[in-house]
Design a protein around this nucleic acid. Sequence first.
DNA 1: TCGCAATTGATAATGATTATCAATGATAGC
DNA 2: GCTATCATTGATAATCATTATCAATTGCGA
Lengths: 149, 149
Amino acid sequence: MSLLAKKRSAAMAAKLKDSGLKATPQRLAIMRVLAESKGHPSVDDIYRRLQRRFPGISPATVYRNIMLIKSLGEAVEISLAGSASRYDGRKPYPHPHIVCVECGNILDPELASLGDMTREVTAASGFEIKSFRLDFFGVCPACRKKSGS
Amino acid sequence: MSLLAKKRSAAMAAKLKDSGLKATPQRLAIMRVLAESKGHPSVDDIYRRLQRRFPGISPATVYRNIMLIKSLGEAVEISLAGSASRYDGRKPYPHPHIVCVECGNILDPELASLGDMTREVTAASGFEIKSFRLDFFGVCPACRKKSGS
DNA sequence: TCGCAATTGATAATGATTATCAATGATAGC
DNA sequence: GCTATCATTGATAATCATTATCAATTGCGA
Ligand SMILES: [Mn+2]
Ligand SMILES: [Mn+2]
Ligand SMILES: [Zn+2]
Ligand SMILES: [Zn+2]
């Protein structure tokens, strides 16, 4: 387990305790998967990954806990049109994504030119901005090679 | 009907003819609603708006034609987590939005600092970027007044 | 005007997510 | 450590937006 994963896992568990919620094995395992996954897993990904260790686990439990972890501010949801949402427990704050429309992979790009966009929008609209989402859709290098584009 | 609405309506109808598709009254009416709406209507909004003039129209027809108009490149979809997608037929190209999480209103902000983000992402990731979405979520001035925030 | 492929309306199917509820289990207090 | 309590789980039904299916209708070219 990487250093970041340990850190994120610990942060999530701490938030749990602070909120007076129970440290269920399933719940902790879901947190660990979120903390370790670099690839933005879906609920079903997490569900299938946990079936080895929890043969009787229910998808409902994964949904419930993802919802909880989100509400604790310890994961972000990437909602996509026409397919299941994906989650990021390693960067639990709004950040841009690149989605490959061929294979479904999702990456976290580094994006320098992003800073004062929120400020600009706030000033122009009078909205109180709570969050944002910035997603790019395209074809990843591997899929470009395959389709010969 | 505004000048822009006329222009957008005509553009959509032209694409229809070019593609050898039929100019159904329902289809043309859906296009007109999309061309006239400033407020990013949902399928159900459009459906309800058309019931006066087409008492027997089916939601399926609206879905089908929205899908078609999108595939013609004449409207963009704003897909939202947990609620129905909204559509923009006035700016049929990717552009940022501000969503009020209280009342659901969606605006098109002017956003100068946006230009070379796509180029930057392309360079950094090797993806072939096809489109993007940039949505800000917050509370609009009217709702801020109501909730006394 | 005719014929036919495209389109419509009705309806069923899908797929992701949420709600419900009885059984189970974590944990605080003894 | 034992127990009582209340949160949580697993199973399952319900919801909701969207898609698929199909017979009946209709736009439109010949
Ligand atoms: Mn991410
Ligand atoms: Mn718009
Ligand atoms: Zn790919
Ligand atoms: Zn509002």
